[in-house]
């Protein structure tokens, strides 16, 4: 359990770092490290597929996309964040942590829940046979994403 808690704390720490760092490149790398930690947490929850997916896609692909964007927008990258935002953050964060802790401790043992239907088979079977419709949705989203990028980066050939 201690390892889990340490990993979760690391995840939160790196996420906070990703937000606090002024330098966008450092922020993106912190985000990737946070994803990596999340992937390890998933592995420890006996969810190897999503762990691998998180590490390869979120820590890999999305970070690459972020870094490409940062590189393409380099010269305008220095945006002065407001001083107040970084001042207030630790205060609000600690208040939220305390609140979160007490709410969750108050909820211990108080949440009623039904037993889920036990599941059989492998991950592939569940994905393909139980959540089949989700795959149709995934196809739709991928279409939407690809077409969106095509539309946004199209050459502005105004065919008059």
């Amino acid at each position: 359990m201690i390892v889990e808690i340490a990993l979760l704390c690391g995840l939160v720490l790196f996420s906070v770092a990703a937000i606090i760092f002024r330098d966008l490149l450092k922020a993106a790398i912190c985000l990737a490290v946070a994803s990596l930690l999340l992937g390890i947490i998933f592995f420890r929850m006996k969810a190897p597929y999503i762990g691998a997916f998180e590490i390869s896609v979120v820590a890999g692909l999305i970070t690459v996309l972020f870094i490409t964007t940062i590189a393409l927008t380099k010269t305008g990258g220095d945006v002065r964040e407001s001083k107040a935002a970084s001042w207030i953050f630790p205060l609000v964060f600690v208040v939220f942590l305390v609140l979160d802790f007490f709410v969750m401790r108050g909820l211990i043992g108080k949440i009623p829940a039904l037993e889920a239907t036990p599941e059989q088979g492998t991950f592939g079977e569940v994905l393909w046979k139980i959540r089949t419709f989700d795959l149709v949705g995934q196809i739709g989203v991928i279409f939407a994403g690809v077409l969106a990028v095509l539309a946004l980066f199209r050459k502005r050939d105004k065919d008059e």
Binding site: D134, G137, Q138, G140, V141, A144, G145, A148
Partner: peptide
Amino acid sequence: IFLEVAAV
């Protein structure tokens, strides 16, 4: 999922 398809 479909909300997001339409939204993207």
